[in-house]
Every structure is written in structure tokens, then in C-alpha cells.
Design a protein around this nucleic acid. Structure first.
Lengths: 333, 333
DNA sequence: CTGAAAGCGCTTACAG
DNA sequence: CTGAAAGCGCTTACAG
């Protein structure tokens, strides 16, 4: 077993450079209104390099009252492709600003309060609704708070929006433009997806209403070949016959395409199908999938900007409308 | 603007409970060899609840010398499906043990040393090779170190293995069992994938050698329809003719399946194709993709176990062999 | 069974 | 231009 080596502290650097801890700190933090001669600065920096000194974030956090960390709290959602890409891009983006992203899931009954009080992050990003009193408490602790809602914001707060309802609406408008009137919605029955599913369905419903189309029938589908076959059969035999399906995502869409094929039918002739996520394999399905692409880079950049501006006391960036959403038209519709 | 509220500290709890900070700490940490009467304990716990007290991790970390955090350092790899799922499952697993997972990318030229010295985590997990001296330094700082290599370990260290070479070998053995002898490897030219690509190719090469098959030709393919068509044409016209392709992942495999279709050919008759990752859409490609599934839950559980055992001073769990790999046979081979 | 006190490694008024 | 000193909120020998 190797012997435990003592940590190199600012005091060690101070000694090596022949100055005090204070000066070391001033140099390293480039504290304003301190005029330290270049020569002294160089000596400190040399010592830092020679000793391989790194300030301990815990000590700094204790003194400053907060970390250089952004705490992202999310419900216990399954990690889909888009969410994973957004979070990854966000982490990279924040890192480039000297911030760490710490992602925590909030399981049922776990208190949000405990998480941020324990960590004392610079900012908290909540995915999904947060109680007003909780948000107040976060702000009162001097922590910047942002909320990433899945729907259009009801209040003009610091809420970034990744509007799931806009996805459903976009899907419906595309199908309507192709002449379809009798639509159906195919999504997961699993309650873990409910937050996303329900909002997409809502958006689809509202769009149908606006376009004067009948309300789309929502069906829980098992995204297997058998589940898809059953669903497709149901729609084809139904009166009035469904001619197009809004799928929860590309997996459901792909299952339906394959199911139709098994029935000797095909998209879009017998049933038009549109997915969401623009999975890498979506274009290689045959017929290739029409889908909605969520621009994860844009969403991540926006979230990062919101936090960075907030920490700097600058105004929030302009809200993301549906710019982050792109319709990718292929063969299945 | 809300007024800044002062933090609730252990001293506040002590006052409210009529005891000292010491006793509060003993109760909250269940410090061994302290016999605190149930009544006192209750008073402390009540005060904690009433005041909504949460210990500040930075203060605890400063005192203890380390955090309850696991630092995972990875190269600047693109986040593929399997990696994302492993990391997510690992985070969940560690959370259930009271540990946070902090993921950081190590960009070129960035020092690993700076990251762990700054954070003072309980453990460091490095994805990929780490210099011996660096690992020594981590250990010497009292931090548990684990390495998740992409290949079979050369030394009997605390290295978890996610053997990418075994994937390539598994692909080749399946194709060989189907009677194929003249194989090719299709992968990305993008150097960001090189670590994974090269190891899978190596594994494929070695398996061919063991089976007495000719060395597989490796081709950089653009995973688009056009790229796939060009590649497929090349293999079909080549002498000796290639009869089966080991694809880097399902995206490449799907592109090749689609490319063949465009050429009026099909898998597996004209060219057998096997992918990696078992993407949700892989079974809905037609013909459906044969692929290799990496059990991300198993890998994550193993990594978590390694860390937890390490922190508790217990021996490492038995190594993961290729148990985490499953061949999923479908129509494309 | 309980508490006073030291000390972890920083930052930052404050004094010179 | 520079440093001595206080203090952030914990944990833990140590003394009673």
C-alpha cells in the first residue's frame, strides 16, 4: 500500500513563492482591484506549476457559500435518445464555462430541498414543474433557478421550454397537409413515459381541433411486431377507417411500419406513419420514416446560456420557440 | 428580490434540541461507540426535521478529506447508445448507495490530475488507459481508483473490462458458423470513434486468424445510403467476393442493408450483415438486423459494485467476462 | 453520556 | 503592494 501523501495547499505555494496565502489567492483568482507586480505573479504561478497545486473545491465552496456546480434534477424518467443527447451537450457546454453538471434523479418522495441544500450548487435546473415555495427557497439561498418545462410556459419565469405538445401538433399538421383527416395516436402504456406521451397527445389533439379534424383515437401500443400488427389491424378495420398515425417516437413508428408489412400492407398507402426523434436508423427503415427532429444542441446551448446569464446577472436569452423542432419528411407519410 | 436566508447549520439544530453540535453530528452520522439515549436522539432528529436541516457536503468534504462523489473521467468520445445507457444506469446504481456520479470529459491536453485534486472524490473511474504514475497519485491521495478498459486487461488490476475486441470476435464467429469465409469490416473513418472501431476490428481480425479465415478487409464507410451503396458494390464486385460484413454498429449495418436493397440485392443472400448495439429499431429494419447486445445494466452494476467494494475495503467482484455480450440472431445473417 | 475546541483549505475584509 | 486573521460548517480526538 502506498503511503498517503499530504495535500499541497495554498500555504505550500505561498512558502515556495515567498509570499502569503492571500497573495496566492489573489493571483489565482485574478481578484479585481489588486495590483500585483508581474514578477510576484510569475513567482506564484511558477510555484503552482512546480508543486502541481490545485485548489480544493470543497474549501472554496465552504467559504464562498456555493459550488461551481449546476445541479440538474429530473424525475425518474427513462433516458431516451434525445434527453441523453441534450444532457450530454449541456454538460459539455457548461464545462466550457467552468461549471460541472451534476444530474440527479428525484425519486418519488425524495425532497428537492435536500439535494440543493446539501450540494449548495451555483444553479439548479429542474426538469418539470417545481413548487413555487421551493423555487423561492432556492432563490432565497442565493442559488439561480431555472425550470425546463415540457410545455409552453404559463408564467413568464426563467423557464426554458422543450415543448412536447408542439411535437404532437407538428406531426398532425404534416399529416393534415398530406390530406389525412382520420388520425390515431400510438404511444406507450408504461406510466414512466406518461409525462411525454400525454403532452404530445395533447398537442396532437389541439392541432386536430384547430384544423377541424376529428379527435384522434389514442391507443396504447406495445412496440413489438405483434403489438404493432394488432394496432394496425384495428385501425384498418375501424369505421371510419384511420389513414394516418401519430407515433410517440420512431420506435413505435418503426414497429407499425413493420407490422403493416406483415399484414401485406404498407406505409404510406394503407396507413401513413410519422415518428419522433430522428433515430439514426429511421432513414434505413423501409419505407424510411418521416419524423420530428429535436435539435438537442440548440436546446442544450439555450439551457447553458440561461444559466450562465443568470449567474452573471444578465437577462435571460430569448425563449426557444419551436425552432428546436424540425420536420424530416421521408417516405412513410 | 427575495432577501437572502441564512443557512440552517448543525449549531441551530443543537440549540433547538438543547445539545451540542457534537451530539448532533453523532446522531446524524450514527457514529459508532457512542451510546446516545433514545430520548436525546429523538430530540435531535425532531429538530432536524423542524428546521429542515441538511448538512453541507462541502463542509463535510473539507473535514473528511473527500466527497461522496465518484468522478468518472472519459475521453471526448461521442456518446453512443450503449455508453449513455451504461452511464445512466451507473448513476442510478451509485445514487442508491449514497454516492453521486460526476462525469467529466478529458479534452486533449487537460490533466486528469487537476480534476480529482480539485474535487477530492471518494473514487475515480477512468474510461480508458491511465498512466501508472497518475493512478499511484490517486491512490496515494486516499482515493479509490478503477479503470474501465475497452479491452481485456493486461495486468491484474482493478480494471473493469468492456471488451470491445470480444464484440468483433463474436461477430466473426457467428458469420463463420453460418459458413462465411470472406469477410469485410465496415466502420467509421471519423477518428473520434477510433478507440472503439480499432478494438472491434482487432477482435474480428484475431478471430478470423483463429478460425483460419482470410484477414477481413477493413473499409471506412460513410453511414449514408450513398456510402453504403458504394461499399456494397465494392464488396460484391471484388475478387474474391466478400459474402459477409462485420459492421461497426447497427447504424452501419442498417445503411448496408438499405444500400443492398437499392442495388436490387439483399441480405443475407447477397451479403450477410451483423451490427452492434441492438438499437430499438434494429428489429424493424427489413431484413431485421442480427446484432450484438451489450448488457448495460450488468456493466453498470459491476462498475458500481467495484467502487462500493473498493470503498469498503472489500475485494473486487469477479471480473465480467463476455457475459455482458449477447448475440441477437435475426434475419440479416 | 456530552461538550469545548481544534482544524480541514480556502477567500476576503481590514490594516498597514 | 502585501499579510495576519477571521470565518465558512462540519467531524472527531479529547477531556470530563
Amino acid at each position: 500500500m502506498t503511503e498517503l501523501r499530504k495535500r499541497v495547499t495554498a500555504l505550500d505555494v505561498a512558502h515556495a513563492a515567498g509570499v502569503s496565502k492571500t497573495t496566492v489567492s489573489y493571483v489565482l483568482n485574478q481578484t479585481p482591484n489588486q495590483s500585483i507586480p508581474a514578477e510576484t505573479r510569475r513567482r506564484v504561478l511558477d510555484a503552482v506549476r512546480d508543486l502541481n497545486y490545485t485548489p480544493l473545491s470543497a474549501a472554496r465552496a465552504l467559504r464562498r457559500g456555493h459550488n461551481d456546480t449546476v445541479l440538474l434534477v429530473m424525475p425518474d424518467w427513462p433516458l431516451g435518445r434525445t434527453l441523453a443527447l441534450v444532457l450530454d451537450a449541456l454538460a459539455v457546454e457548461l464545462e466550457s464555462q467552468g461549471l460541472s453538471l451534476l444530474i440527479r434523479r428525484q425519486h418519488h418522495g425524495q425532497s428537492l430541498s435536500g439535494m440543493w441544500r446539501e450540494l449548495a450548487p451555483a444553479a439548479v435546473i429542474a426538469l418539470g414543474e417545481v413548487e413555487e415555495s421551493e423555487e423561492e427557497a432556492i432563490l432565497a439561498a442565493g442559488i439561480f433557478a431555472a425550470t425546463a418545462l415540457l410545455t409552453s410556459p404559463s408564467s413568464p419565469r426563467t423557464a426554458v421550454v422543450v415543448p412536447q405538445d408542439a411535437i404532437g401538433a407538428l406531426q398532425v399538421r404534416h399529416l393534415a397537409a398530406r390530406g389525412h383527416r382520420q388520425l390515431a395516436f400510438a404511444g406507450p402504456g408504461d406510466p414512466r413515459f406518461a409525462a411525454f406521451r400525454n403532452l404530445r397527445l395533447d398537442g396532437a389533439r389541439r392541432a386536430c381541433e384547430e384544423l377541424g379534424l376529428p379527435d384522434p383515437e389514442a391507443l396504447d401500443v406495445d412496440p413489438s411486431l405483434e403489438g404493432a400488427i394488432a394496432a394496425a389491424r384495428h385501425w384498418l378495420e375501424r369505421a371510419p377507417r384511420v389513414t394516418a398515425v401519430v407515433a410517440y417516437n420512431d420506435e413505435f413508428a418503426a414497429a407499425l411500419v413493420a407490422g403493416l408489412h406483415q399484414l401485406g400492407r404498407s406505409a404510406p398507402g394503407d396507413l401513413a406513419i410519422i415518428g419522433v426523434d430522428n433515430e439514426p436508423l429511421a432513414r434505413f427503415i423501409s419505407p424510411s420514416l418521416t419524423t420530428v427532429d429535436q435539435n438537442h444542441e440548440l436546446v442544450a446551448a439555450h439551457l447553458a446560456q440561461l444559466v450562465v446569464n443568470g449567474l452573471a446577472g444578465e437577462p435571460a436569452p430569448h425563449p426557444l420557440h419551436s425552432d428546436a423542432l424540425t420536420l424530416v419528411v421521408r417516405e412513410s407519410t
